[in-house]
Each structure stands twice: as structure tokens, then as C-alpha cells.
Lab assay of single mutants.
Amino acid sequence: DVEEQIRRLEEVLKKNQPVTWNGTTYTDPNEIKKVIEELRKSM
């Protein structure tokens, strides 16, 4: 579920933690925001 994935990513973003997405680890909050944007567009 895309909305659930977005929620999880936003939680990680709030905690300022790195997130691994599709085999890539993002540590930059701006990169994580881009991933969230892409997910929103795909909905």
C-alpha cells in the first residue's frame, strides 16, 4: 500500500534516520522527501 509506505518514510524523516529504499540508503532528508514525492505521483 503506497500510502502506508509514505507514512513510514515520513516517520523515518521525523526521526532523522537513514532509510533504505529499493536497495539504496538515503541519509539526506531532501533525498527522502524526493522518494516520498515520487510515491505520491505514482498513486
Rank of each mutant, 00 (worst) to 15 (best):
D1A: 13
D1Y: 12
D1R: 05
V2C: 05
V2Q: 07
V2N: 04
V2S: 04
E3S: 07
E4P: 01
E4F: 07
E4V: 04
Q5Y: 09
Q5G: 05
Q5R: 04
Q5N: 05
I6M: 03
I6W: 03
I6F: 02
I6L: 07
R7C: 04
R7K: 09
R7D: 05
R7M: 09
R7P: 01
R7I: 07
R8Q: 15
R8C: 06
R8M: 15
R8E: 13
L9Q: 00
L9F: 08
L9P: 00
L9T: 00
L9C: 01
L9I: 06
E10V: 05
E10K: 05
E10W: 06
E11S: 07
E11W: 04
E11P: 00
E11D: 11
E11K: 05
E11Y: 05
E11R: 05
V12E: 15
V12I: 14
V12F: 15
V12Q: 15
L13H: 03
K14Y: 12
K14R: 14
K15I: 09
K15V: 07
K15A: 12
K15C: 09
K15S: 15
N16G: 15
N16C: 05
N16Y: 05
N16F: 14
Q17H: 12
P18L: 07
P18A: 13
P18I: 10
P18K: 09
P18R: 03
V19I: 14
V19R: 00
V19E: 02
V19P: 02
V19C: 03
V19Q: 02
V19N: 02
T20K: 11
T20M: 12
T20P: 03
T20D: 13
T20Q: 11
W21L: 11
W21D: 02
W21A: 02
W21K: 01
W21C: 04
W21E: 02
W21G: 02
W21R: 00
N22F: 10
N22A: 08
N22P: 02
G23I: 01
G23H: 03
G23R: 00
G23T: 02
T24V: 15
T24N: 10
T24F: 12
T25P: 03
T25A: 05
T25S: 05
T25I: 13
Y26G: 01
Y26V: 05
T27R: 04
T27K: 07
T27L: 08
D28G: 04
D28C: 04
D28W: 02
D28P: 01
P29G: 06
P29D: 04
P29V: 09
N30I: 13
N30R: 10
N30S: 13
N30M: 13
N30C: 13
N30E: 15
E31G: 03
E31D: 13
E31M: 10
E31Y: 04
I32L: 07
I32G: 01
I32V: 10
K33V: 09
K33H: 07
K34L: 12
K34Q: 11
K34N: 09
K34T: 08
V35S: 01
V35A: 05
I36A: 01
I36P: 00
I36G: 00
I36L: 10
E37I: 05
E37Y: 04
E37M: 08
E38C: 15
E38L: 10
E38Q: 11
E38V: 06
E38I: 10
L39K: 00
L39F: 02
L39G: 00
R40C: 03
R40M: 10
R40Q: 08
R40P: 00
K41N: 14
K41P: 02
S42V: 13
S42W: 11
S42Q: 15
S42A: 12
M43T: 09
M43W: 06
M43S: 06
